[in-house]
């Protein structure tokens, strides 16, 4: 489902060349990528999501070499096939919870019934905040919303960048379990990038950068 070959990346105005290991995930497979800060974890994730273009090498998602796509095509491809979960920023501030999900669907050109949005919110236990402004939610609730935003359009790949780093132990556990459960439900490959060792035990496949 997602595969990389000889992926290298160099930032402009920087002499450091990042080398990334080859990965190859089949659908529904999980992967945990561990590494210290500054080692290029986020860079790797952004390459996988097509947010950065590799200096060398390939990222192949569902038989598409995404580094070859034009910017517009890449935006569309990303919107449709990839779900991203971030550490802190979760959703658009000016919209309420429900409208965030609607906006998400609009931009990725996916069609999902309102009742399916509601049932997802229900699963993630944030249905009661449906019409709340997002800055009224707690960290844990926001991370649940973040997961909802990442899976609502049924992506093929679910990428999470430090999803648990700012959460307490209990919430951390809930969030990682929800993430795995949602990935399974949407049949997506899940890649989590973190330096948070608390979640090591949840993944069979692990790489250290």
């Amino acid at each position: 489902m997602i595969q990389t070959e000889n992926l290298r990346f160099q930032y402009q105005n920087s002499s450091e060349l990042f080398h990334f290991p080859n990965i190859n995930l089949s659908p529904k497979e999980d992967l945990l990528i561990l590494g210290k800060s500054g080692i290029g974890k986020t860079t790797f994730l952004h390459l996988l999501a097509g947010l950065l273009k590799p200096t060398e090498g390939k990222v192949i998602i569902d038989d598409t070499e995404i580094q070859l796509l034009s910017n517009n095509k890449l935006d569309q491809f990303r919107g449709k096939n990839i779900g991203l979960v971030f550490q802190k920023k979760h959703a658009i501030q000016s919209l309420c919870v429900f409208k965030n999900l609607q906006a998400r669907l609009f931009f990725s050109k996916s069609k999902v019934q309102n009742k399916d949005i509601e049932s997802l919110l229900d699963q993630l236990e944030i249905l009661e905040y449906k019409n709340s402004n997002i800055n009224k939610l707690s960290e844990g609730q926001l991370q649940r919303l973040s997961i909802a935003m990442a899976v609502i359009h049924k992506p093929k790949i679910l990428l999470a960048d430090e999803p648990t780093s700012s959460l307490d132990d209990e919430t951390c556990k809930i969030v990682i379990e929800l993430l795995k459960q949602q990935a399974k439900q949407t049949q997506a490959s899940l890649i989590v990038i973190t330096h948070d060792h608390r979640i090591k035990s949840y993944f069979q496949n692990q790489i250290n950068l």
Partner: peptide
Amino acid sequence: LLRTYGAS
């Protein structure tokens, strides 16, 4: 974020 959602 909107860009990651697929917005151009």
